[in-house]
Each structure stands twice: as structure tokens, then as C-alpha cells.
Amino acid sequence: MDKKYLLNLIETNHNMAGDLLYLTRVIPQGLVHEWASKLDEPKITEKQAWETLAPRFSMTATDLERQVLDGFIGMTFEEIEMESYKIKKLSGEVKKLHAENEALRATIKKVTIPQFVADWIGECKNNEGGVMSLYGALNEMPTEVASWMIDGGSQNYFARAWLDGYEVEEEKLYYVLSPEEKTMLQINGNGDVLHSMGISLKEAQTYHQLTEKEIKDYDERFWPFAVEVTE
């Protein structure tokens, strides 16, 4: 066997490996290529080629030839096919179980939580360093979220929202009105709260409607003048 034939044989048997799970059991292609490329041709015979390589694997030339042709050290081609079949079958069963689990999760009624709690859960799960653990989320949560969870007795809601998903409750909206029922605050397109020009309630627009948080974050002194939007 000349050098070209041996290189082709190695390349062919390497490609037969197929499944990555077994690649570590294949004779390293690069190493065998290196040895084979150093063979002199046409001075070396096929028998001499196997005899040259065999000592590297502490094997006889006959055993090395047989196992390279089979494609794997210690396995026949039939054994490889059987193992590949088992893996594909197991993979299919795992996918089926995953689909059943997702279908079951879809039937679970999701809890409803405030927007600021949903924002915190989203921030934790989209953390740049990876998903923050539930333990980390509980220990590092903002005061507002902690107050809602502990003072409001919503620990179970937080845990269920974390594990099963959630729906965000529709926040109540308010007009901030003066004693003359003129608007005092509004919100612009950038989400900034500003003083209003004093529009009557009848002429008030959606940008005069603010959440409790937006009002209090701007100035808590305006909260007593908040009137819930009922329309």
C-alpha cells in the first residue's frame, strides 16, 4: 500500500465515525496523517505500513488494521450502529417528555403580578452574567418588590411567577387634578413626567393619565390629588 492509499483509507474511516459521542474513541486523524505522510513510497508495503503504525498503539499490525477498518478502537461497525440507534431512540423519548412537560405547563394558571415585580423577574432572568438564581433574586430584590412580597404576603406568588410564568396586572391610571379639576401633571413620549398646562378633566388626554408609581416617583406630594381613571 502506498502513502496516498493509506491517507485515503484513514480519511474514509475517520468520516465513518459520524456520531460525535464516539470521536474520542477514533484513532486521532491528525496524528495518523502525520505518521502516514512520513512513509516513503513506493518503498513501503501495505504490511510494512501497518507494522510501522502498530507500535504506537501497543497493538499488532493485524489488530490495528482490523480495528481501523472497523472505524473505532474496540468496537465493530455493527456495535456502533446499535449504539447510534439507542442514542437516537433515547433522544426521541427525551424530546417527547419535554413536549409533554411544556404542554402541562401551558395548562397551569399563571399568577398575576404588578409590573414592577415583573420587571425585576425579567431583569434577573436576563442578567448579562447568566440567569440569576431564585436565591439571588430574593436576596438582592429592590425595596419595592420586597415590600410587596413580604408585607403583602405574596411570597408564593413570587415563587410561582418565577417557576411557571406570570401575567402582568393592568395598572390603575390616575389624573392628577387641582381643586379646580385642572390637570397638574402629564407624561411625554419619553416617559418623563412634566407639569401640565391646566387642562380641564373633560379635555384631558391619555398623556394626562399616570400610574401611582410615576406620580410618586415624580413627587409624592401630588399623590393626594390623584383621581382614578374610570372610563
Rank of each mutant, 00 (worst) to 15 (best):
T52W: 01
V68M: 13
S91C: 05
K172R: 14
N101L: 15
T45H: 09
K38D: 13
E203T: 04
K216C: 11
G92E: 08
I121H: 01
S84H: 12
R221T: 04
F225Y: 15
A161G: 06
E78D: 12
E46L: 13
S154E: 14
V94Q: 09
T107Q: 10
M184K: 12
I187W: 00
R105A: 11
M132S: 10
G122C: 04
P114M: 02
A226Q: 02
W35L: 09
L90M: 13
V145G: 02
A103P: 04
L39C: 10
P42A: 09
C124G: 02
C124T: 08
I199C: 02
S147D: 12
A54R: 06
V111E: 08
L194A: 01
P55Q: 06
V193P: 02
L6N: 04
A54H: 07
I10M: 10
M197K: 13
W162P: 10
P179M: 04
T12V: 09
E228W: 06
T45V: 03
D63A: 14
L97Y: 07
V145P: 08
N8P: 03
E79K: 11
E140M: 07
K110Y: 03
V94N: 03
F158P: 05
K125L: 14
S58T: 04
L7G: 01
R160S: 07
A161Y: 03
E65W: 01
D70C: 09
W148R: 00
A106Q: 13
Q205K: 14
G136Y: 11
V145S: 02
M82R: 15
Y85G: 01
Q186K: 09
K3M: 01
K109M: 01
A54D: 00
Q155Y: 15
A17Q: 11
N127E: 10
L177M: 07
G152W: 08
M59F: 07
L201G: 01
H195S: 13
F225E: 03
H14D: 06
P28G: 10
P28H: 14
T52N: 07
E231M: 05
K125T: 06
E102S: 14
S196L: 06
S133L: 08
K109T: 14
P114R: 00
W223F: 13
D219C: 02
S91T: 07
R56C: 10
E78G: 09
A118R: 00
T62R: 14
E228L: 12
V145L: 01
Q205R: 11
L39A: 13
V117F: 05
H98F: 09
P114W: 06
G136P: 00
Q155R: 00
L21I: 06
M75I: 05
V227T: 13
K4G: 04
L23G: 06
P224R: 05
L64D: 00
L21S: 07
K110Q: 09
D40A: 07
Y174M: 12
V145H: 06
H14Y: 15
L23W: 11
N127R: 14
T112Y: 12
L6Y: 04
L7C: 07
H208V: 05
N101K: 15
D164W: 03
L163M: 09
S84M: 14
V229H: 05
P142L: 03
M197H: 09
E181D: 13
